[in-house]
Design a protein around this nucleic acid. Sequence first.
DNA 1: TTACTATATAATAATTTACTTATATATTCA
DNA 2: TGAATATATAAGTAAATTATTATATAGTAA
Lengths: 114, 114
Amino acid sequence: MIKTQVEIDKAAMLLKLLGDKTRLTMMKILDTHDCCVCEFVEIFKTSQPSISQHLRKLRDVGLVKEERRGQWIFYSMNKSNEYYSFIQQVINQLPDQNYHLKELEEKGTRITCC
Amino acid sequence: MIKTQVEIDKAAMLLKLLGDKTRLTMMKILDTHDCCVCEFVEIFKTSQPSISQHLRKLRDVGLVKEERRGQWIFYSMNKSNEYYSFIQQVINQLPDQNYHLKELEEKGTRITCC
DNA sequence: TTACTATATAATAATTTACTTATATATTCA
DNA sequence: TGAATATATAAGTAAATTATTATATAGTAA
């Protein structure tokens, strides 16, 4: 179910989630590409547990999905989430972040398995 | 100047600001009505300093303006702020919050000075 | 099997946030 | 002028958030 209006409590909760540069960038990237944890670790140059914890928060409210592919776990946007259209209104206004993936490709560390 | 795209850092900062139920509701109300501090105090049933501090954060980034009218200080949306259109995309998706003002009017505590 | 890689989770520490209490300033009104 | 009202700010505190370190689990590959 897609909402055109979001209760104020839910909206505040979602905006707080997006109000972090790491998570916001993740969401922008995931809107167009699936990504595995180790790629995010490289993109954000932070620790793996930190990335996992950010992803967990996004997953806990159903904004993203996870799926194992071989040894990797790929995250993807959950476009059937009831708040996806709300989220989309925000991320559509953000500049493209796919240069991060380009950088991984150039370094040869982009994971394109399965 | 109105931006159609907002840098990711700025966007995260703005979303964090909006990611609080009190501030988000304030912004939704201010988008259609000016409001003074004591009205917010009554609406949110919290302390006056707490309200002032929330308003200060919104004012510090230029999202709202303040203006003294007699003994009251009225806050209003700064619609010429460069991030207003970004903000608007968010608050347009929120349910109307003007019932709060209706309640004040019914109680006779709505301030309509000057 | 053993070693290695990828990921999650738990525990902890550091930082940030939001609220409260106390107080200062500005305005109005008697 | 003095009292009352409206607001801002400072200081302190409690709660929430984020990152780190340590460790556990699961898959892969020798």
